[in-house]
Design a binder for these strands. Structure first.
Length: 427
RNA sequence: GGAUGGGUGGCUGAGUGGUCUAAAGCAACGGUCUUGAAAACCGUCGCCUUCGCAAGGGGGCCGUGAGUUCGAAUCUCACCCCAUCCGCCA
């Protein structure tokens, strides 16, 4: 959510950003509504003042009269307030100056790439075929047991997931490592390490709403009987961790890394990525969430991207860094940077990472503030970013590390966490 | 799931219809004293919103939402959450 004062004073910027993000909001209506709401509130405040005086003087007659006069006004105000807020919630975040302006994902800009696209002296296969042949991926059985878009990840592939987890948590929890990654990337930020968190996977819809994401209920698994829903990302329960709290400036930045399963209904993506485990109803993800001072948040996002790149480089997976354009970026994002990893089986880059800088957009709605050293209060800035989306990284490893005989080499950095095993063979 | 007790400012905690404009303590901040620090003493000290150049004033907030009343932290109802015990359980 934006600040109404900001909208009032920067109507053009907000209108342009909204249009660039393919959203529609009547800002004039919003501002008019804000004025009406404010003047009605002032009227109520005035009457309340009189009412308070009458009560103090035990003036029962005057009090009763005022009470009658005010009848319905509070309800009217509540109605107005509701309308006002529902419009406020429809205004997307503005975007950064360096965000490309374009209508759809074709406007995304590749800002750098790393690694050589591997050349095979055989026709590379897709991960689902390789996985099936090696007995480490069973989609058929999952289909019978749970339906489409589910899978059994078995044997050495399951071990690779735990190795990935170990590898990432080790360095994310290490200050010196964070410092060296930042230094290497030319980013100047605190070297605070990431606190590992295993968060809840259920969330109250009311709290999820306060994450200021454009929520489509049909995209989530909803449990109305319990007033709960399943999270689509660890970000959903990590972000609200300081809801309605004030953080001291000296305690920032706060960096969390959460490991959880993510659940997505994928209602709007029928027929898309139906093969393999690229798009699942359920996948595990290691997700970073950070809180920092406003003046540090761009650099903070740069650090998160540097960490993502560090992980892909360590795994020796070719990738490109994409600055996501206005038409493709998230509703609450100020700047979105995606990483796309090369998938030889599909012969293209596929999104494996996303880094969202939401600035004060989520924190304002969550009411997570920082007390500055001069006593001033303001919303903190928030960043969230993928560390490892397990499903898709497993796909990338299988496809990039496949050998002519159908076996799969294990990335060197993970071998340590797999008892020194170097290759996945058919058992 | 059953029973009981609770949710009050950053924290502890008093307050059971009107001097609550929420006591007191702790923490924090400023000062006095001191070579410095501690202690002691003095002072400041919630959030949102609105009017005002400012000083300052108004309104709202005691888990959330509705209600009763001239007047609600206090009474009523619903819901949420926490603690303890019992039951069940990884």
């Amino acid at each position: 959510m934006l600040d109404i004062k900001f909208i009032r004073e920067n109507k053009d910027i907000v209108a342009t950003a909204t249009k660039n993000k393919n959203r529609e909001v009547d800002l004039d209506e919003l501002l008019a509504l804000a004025d009406t709401r404010k003047s009605l509130k002032q009227e109520i405040d005035g009457l309340n003042q009189q009412r308070n005086e009458a009560a103090k003087n035990r003036d029962i007659e005057k009090g009763g009269q005022l009470k009658k006069e005010m009848e319905g006004m509070e309800g009217e105000y509540a109605e107005l307030d509701k309308k006002f807020l529902s419009l406020m919630f429809k205004v997307p975040n503005i975007h950064s100056l360096d965000t490309p302006v374009a209508g759809d994902e074709t406007g995304n800009k590749v800002i750098r790439s790393w690694g050589e696209i591997p050349k095979f002296d055989f026709v590379p296969k897709e991960h689902d075929e390789l996985g099936k042949d090696l007995g480490i991926l069973d989609i058929e059985t999952a289909g019978e047991i749970s339906g489409s878009r589910f899978a059994y990840i078995k044997g050495d592939l399951a071990l690779i997931q735990f190795a990935l987890l170990q590898f990432c948590l080790q360095f994310l929890n290490n200050q010196e490592k964070i410092e060296s990654i930042a230094k290497e990337a030319g980013v100047s930020v605190a070297n605070t390490s990431f606190t590992p968190v295993i968060p809840p996977v259920f969330i109250k819809p009311a709290v999820q709403n306060r994450m200021a994401r454009f929520m489509m209920p049909e995209e989530h698994y909803m449990f109305p009987n319990d007033d709960l829903m399943l999270i689509g990302s660890a970000e959903h329960t990590l972000g609200p961790i300081y809801m309605d709290k004030i953080i001291d400036e000296k305690d920032l930045p706060i960096r969390l890394v959460g490991y959880s399963t993510s659940f997505r209904r994928e209602a709007g993506s029928h027929g898309k990525d139906t093969k393999g485990i690229i798009r699942q109803h359920q996948f595990d993800k290691l997700e970073m969430e950070t809180f920092c001072l406003p003046e540090h948040s761009m650099q903070e996002q740069d650090l998160l991207v540097a960490i993502q790149e560090y992980i892909l480089r360590a795994l020796k997976l070719p990738y490109q860094v994409v600055l996501v354009c206005t038409g493709d970026m998230g509703f609450p994002d100020y700047r979105q940077i995606d990483l796309e990893t090369w998938m030889p089986g599909q012969n293209k880059y596929r999104e494996t990472h996303s880094a969202d800088l939401t600035a004060s957009f989520q924190s304002r709605r969550l009411n997570t503030r920082v007390r500055r050293s001069d006593g001033r209060l303001e919303p903190v800035h928030m960043n969230d970013a993928t560390a490892v989306a397990m499903g898709r990284i497993l796909v990338a490893i299988i496809e990039n590390y496949q050998q002519a005989d159908g076996s799969i080499k294990i990335p060197e950095v993970l071998q340590l966490y797999m008892g020194g095993q170097t290759t996945i063979f058919k058992k």
